[in-house]
Design a binder for these strands. Structure first.
Lengths: 113, 113
DNA sequence: ATCTTAGATTCGAATATCATAATATACTAT
DNA sequence: ATAGTATATTATGATATTCGAATCTAAGAT
């Protein structure tokens, strides 16, 4: 049982473990958006976004409602939003390492201007 | 940049996205443990646990200190613990779906003697 | 009925993750 | 030096994720 619980949590984290899906959830944290609006804001392939939405639906992280032609998505639980907020905090606390991890540490020389 | 940030978060979630690694972090949240103690408590293969520890190290989620023969691990940032606590909350709020997701919903008929 | 628009699903190839087995390193003791 | 213990690393095969391309479905609109 202990282990089943951990498998469940791991599954949720797995769903969160993609930049596009994080972007989707962050966009939705401001309020409901249609699939089309998400695609536009993300600037990505329709099929790809739809696939990521399918993952989020499967893990119950988002709810969707159909209105005529369109499908509107919302966050299912504010806890997910809290988790993402904590991650922002974490990011700021570890900004330096994060940059190194991402291999994007700017050299002091030039570039700005 | 926005995207780099999301890649960073996704990487952290990826590190959390495995039951064994969650177990490790939860064990460490009670305090420092040696690799050997972790292996024993988890009841898993030495090499496997060591690999998961390597992932957690690479993503900077744990710190390690060497003492003679042994290596002791600790959580690096209490925020991670907070995230796991939030996930516990989330789990309780969604217990029912979780069970279904895990395919472990017991049928009312029989089984229990 | 046909066309169009909004989304979802399926397929294939490239890549990543995982567990096990085998090997390597580093320290301690003799 | 040799042996033993604690831990890490590497190689390999199995499985899972990811993306783009193509296809499919449902709802309007003509």
């Amino acid at each position: 049982m202990q282990d089943a619980l951990r498998r469940f949590k791991a599954d949720i984290f797995q769903a969160l473990a993609h930049p596009t899906r994080i972007a989707i959830l962050e966009l939705l944290s401001a309020g409901e958006l249609s699939a089309g609006e998400l695609i536009e804001k993300l600037g990505m392939e329709q099929a790809n976004v739809s696939q990521h939405l399918a993952v989020l639906r499967a893990k119950q992280l988002v709810a969707n409602r159909k209105a005529g032609n369109q499908v509107f998505y919302t966050l299912r639980d504010p806890i997910i939003d809290k988790v993402l907020r904590l991650m922002r905090q974490y990011f700021h606390a570890h900004l330096k390492e994060a940059m190194e991890m991402l291999g994007e540490m700017e050299k002091p020389t030039g570039k700005t201007r």
